[in-house]
Design a protein around this nucleic acid. Structure first.
Length: 847
RNA sequence: GGGCGGUUAGCUCAGUUGGUUAGAGCGCUACCUUGACACGGUAGAGGUCACAGGUUCGAAUCCUGUAUCGCCCA
């Protein structure tokens, strides 16, 4: 035991000790009922770690430590989410390169010494992926160091990365099984498309942003009748117009429905249709349907069975060939003025064309409206018809939707109200889950297509690998029955060029970490897992997708419960996020206050509750940690060679009262933890600890020093018993300081020890009455108050303390201790009917 | 527009199934260096529980409405 205990250096010391002792190692010989398994969120390593991560991971760690001390073998692996677009972007910026699949592999490639983000060097896909692999390894090291320093009780032997062989094999296997059962399918369909990243995106990745645009009044014509005026914010899509649409009840357009009109400039005949989604009070009440301007166009196109006239290409520019109908109507020349232009420029040119033809009936009228964006993109999404892979998720299938909603009800949610986010998301799905991405760093689809004699792929007869070959890379591996030299040749094959959406891998973390089909013995012991901890922002993505995959593959939930952490708000109560630029990195705070102090702050935030970044709380945590050091030192130094404590030695009513109070605290903390309310557990333990220090320690101090008497032995035994409980109760929250003070008088880690059992303390208390300590504390407080008001030292001698009241007998049981702690020469007690204790303090005569 | 959650002391938050005078910490003020702790201790001041109705013997707590903040979805 050090003379002057300190928090400095505890992290470095204990991180190493824990690592060497393997105290957090998962014991895989245990049976399922003896195991607590956690499906840890793999953080995205391409971003910097911020204080919000520390917050939610600490929540999980307190639960893991509680379960471990309860005797469970805790399966608590850590993963890294390194596949996907965020890593690609980081590699591009970090090395100053970009992936160009048409470039050949250069085995000697070295990245530019001085990366120039404006002039990224085009490199082959394979070189690019090598750089991704290299950089993620570095990033993961940084993350792991911080996690260790924060004291996460992870078993690092089970770490995984979402791009590693196991994750790729698992993703491909699950996909092949989905495909075999018809849960995955390929379709050529209108797809939300990001023109910057040139990839399809899924519904879960969308966000609406307000954008300014303008209504353009445009005239369509008909022979022998008045022209029809529509209003559109996207005149550049006029060559893609396939129909006009009005509401069936709109009397203004009744006689038009079923006839045709002619588009301005291009002269294409298009039908006028009726559909209930047309909004009569919007604009002129009649709209043009283009392929495709927005999701309503897609609905109309599908339900009214209209033709397709695509004009926007994968790069967001107007395609070179006009739609056949435009060419046939003689609009090719006008169209040629739009070719190659971005959507924005094409709009300006189209307005010019309309002005020239006299079909723009008014000046464009500015407006703002929500526009769909890819959450990581900065250009509006276009809708492009492409061939993509999907997984069913209930978006267009009522029975799947009902089954998934039932899974949501089956899952335990902490806090419970988070379930509604899941339900609303599932109810609002409007299509299946699009899982293919036209990107590079990710899990490839394990699929090839045979080429016919003209070299065209036959998408209807995909070639699939045997599961034993996984993971495969169809861009470098050949399908069974083919050789590599048949790649791209007529009669040969071609690999599917796409990769899976990150979530298509992340949705399998229980399977990846749990050893599904790789280590069946492990999988059977940990799956379905006990807990999925995560943030509220990814309920619709990660949580939902994981439920979908487990539902299809295993016919079960992936876990029994989910613990949802809130946001971290900056001191101005704004959500902390990279885009707002208010992100705080944890490392400085960890250094300034200690890991335990940061954990204390994090553990003070309830599940589901947004929590402000509050350095004040960290300061409190630091003070608490120091107090634990000092109180432990005191109790141990007083107890001397009396360790281990003998419960039978606890005879004094005050000591028994304290242990009875402690038993209640243990009971409360235990049930709070079992209800996933770590905050309540901490609060109860902490409150008791301060009362223990301020009142109980002061009361028994003098008696405990008087080494000869049995009353002293009682105090010393009670001190040690309480200390043992407190150190263990704090262990999930403040693991460093808890193990430090534990090590002063025990072999082995407190984290491998047992969670206190209320009954043990109840027995040691031997029917002690909590009221004794409470009453003595109350009187002691009154004595202090009198001294404080008289501006006297707490050490000042006083002549007499008189206590009256109903419960004066409680005070009597601690009378000697009270007199000693208050330095009172006399303690007079008088039983009366008063419910409140009346305390009179006779101070010494003023000099 | 729909949904979810919040609104309690200057700040950050507790407040169990409705039950005496609404609690804690920080900050502030005063005092105290007492044999674990000055990286400390003790005490004090500080609140119309967002607002308006209602139910009840009794409401921070239950009901209705309003305001306001955050998030999600249209």
């Amino acid at each position: 035991m050090p003379d002057k205990p300190s928090l400095d250096g505890l992290e470095a010391k204990w991180v190493d000790v824990w690592d060497e002792s393997g105290v957090y190692h998962f014991d895989r010989t245990k049976s399922r009922s003896e195991i607590y398994s956690i499906d840890t969120p793999p953080p995205t390593v391409s971003g910097s770690l911020h204080i919000g991560h520390v917050f939610s991971y600490t929540h999980t760690d307190t639960l893991a430590r509680f379960q471990r001390m309860r005797g469970k073998s805790v399966f608590y692996p850590m993963g890294w989410d390194d596949n996907g677009l965020p890593t690609e972007r980081r590699v591009q910026n970090y090395y100053g390169v970009r992936c160009d699949p048409s470039v050949a592999y250069d085995p000697d490639f070295t990245p530019p010494a001085k990366p120039d983000p404006k002039r990224q060097v085009p490199i082959s896909r394979r070189n690019f992926i090598e750089l991704c692999d290299a950089l993620t390894v570095e990033d993961e090291k940084v993350f792991e160091d911080i996690w260790r320093r924060l004291g996460l009780s992870v078993d690092w032997r089970y770490s995984y990365a979402t791009i590693d062989d196991n994750a790729r094999a698992t993703s491909q296997r699950a996909f092949l099984r989905n495909l075999a059962r018809g849960e995955a399918y390929m379709a050529e369909a209108p797809t939300l498309w990001d023109v910057t990243f040139r990839t399809a995106v899924a519904q879960a990745e969308l966000e609406d942003r307000e954008r300014t645009s303008a209504f353009h009044k445009v005239a369509f014509h008909r022979d022998g009748g008045e022209s029809v005026v529509i209003e559109t914010t996207r005149p550049e899509l006029l060559p893609a117009c396939v129909a006009l649409v009005a509401h069936p009840d709109d009397t203004r357009y009744q006689e038009l429905i079923g006839r045709t009109v002619r588009s301005p400039v291009f002269g294409v005949e298009v039908p006028v249709k009726a559909h209930h989604l047309a909004e009569p009070d919007k604009g002129s009440g009649i709209a043009m349907i283009c392929t495709f301007g927005d999701l309503a166009d897609v609905t109309w196109w599908r339900e009214l069975q209209l033709p397709t006239r695509p004009v926007v290409g994968w790069d967001g520019r107007i395609v070179s060939e006009p739609p056949e109908a435009v060419a046939a109507a003689g609009g090719a020349e006008a169209y040629s003025r739009l070719v190659g232009a971005t959507v924005h420029t094409a709009r300006e040119r189209m307005v010019e064309l309309l002005r020239e033809s006299g079909d723009l009936l008014a000046e464009p009228e500015p407006t703002t409206r929500p526009v769909k964006f890819y959450e990581k993109g900065d250009k509006p999404l276009e809708i492009v018809t492409t061939r993509q892979w999907y997984i069913r998720n209930g978006g267009r299938d009522t029975s799947v939707r009902e089954a998934l909603l039932a899974r949501g009800r089956e899952l335990d949610w902490y806090p419970d109200h988070m379930r509604s986010r899941f339900e609303h998301w599932v109810e609002g799905l409007n299509g299946d889950w699009l899982i293919s991405r036209q990107r590079f760093f990710g899990v490839p689809f394990p699929v090839w297509y045979p080429l016919d004699d003209d070299g065209n792929p036959d998408y209807d007869s995909p070639l699939l690998p045997d599961e034993s070959r996984l993971p495969v890379d169809p861009s470098s591996d050949a399908p069974e029955g083919y050789t590599e030299d048949q790649r791209g040749r007529p009669g040969g094959f071609t690999g599917d060029p796409d990769i899976m959406d990150t979530w298509a891998t992340s949705s399998l973390t229980p399977q990846v970490a749990g050893g599904w089909e790789r280590d069946p013995d492990l999988f059977e012991r940990v799956f379905p897992m006990d807990l999925r901890p995560q943030g509220q922002d990814i309920i619709r993505t990660w949580l939902f997708a994981t439920v979908v995959r487990a539902h299809f593959e295993h016919g079960s939930l992936p876990w029994q419960g989910t613990a949802i952490s809130g946001w971290i708000l900056d001191p101005d109560r704004k959500k902390m996020s990279k885009s707002k630029g208010n992100v705080v990195t944890p490392i400085d705070l960890l250094e300034k206050y200690s890991s335990d102090a940061i954990r204390y702050w994090a553990a003070s935030g309830r599940l589901g509750a947004d929590t402000a970044l509050d350095e004040g709380q960290m300061k409190v945590g630091r003070r608490l940690a120091i107090k634990i050091l000092n109180a432990s030192k005191f109790a141990l130094s007083v107890a001397g060679e009396d360790t281990p404590a003998d419960p039978a030695a606890v005879t004094e009513p005050l000591d028994r009262s304290m242990l009875a109070t402690l038993a209640d605290v243990v009971e409360d903390a235990t049930s709070a933890f079992q209800a996933y309310d770590h905050t309540r557990a901490l609060e109860r333990v902490e409150r008791f600890f301060w009362e223990f220090c301020d009142d109980y320690l002061e009361l028994v101090k003098a008696r405990a020093y008087d080494s000869a008497s049995p009353a002293a032995a009682s105090a010393r035994a009670a001190l040690l018993i309480a200390l043992s409980a407190l150190q263990r109760l704090f262990a999930p929250f403040l693991p460093f300081v808890a193990d430090e003070v534990w090590s002063w008088w025990h072999e082995g880690s407190v984290h491998g020890g047992s969670w206190p059992d209320a009954e043990e303390f109840r027995a040691a208390a031997r029917e002690g009455d909590p009221a004794v300590l409470a009453s003595a504390s109350e009187v002691l407080r009154m004595v202090r108050k009198a001294k404080s008001e008289a501006k006297l030292s707490m050490r000042a001698e006083i002549e007499r303390v008189a206590v009256r009241g109903k419960n004066v007998n409680h005070v009597r049981l601690a009378g000697d201790d009270l007199a000693a702690a208050g330095r009172a020469a006399r303690l007079d007690l008088e039983a009366t009917d008063e419910t409140e204790l009346q305390v009179e303090v006779s101070l010494p005569e003023a000099e």
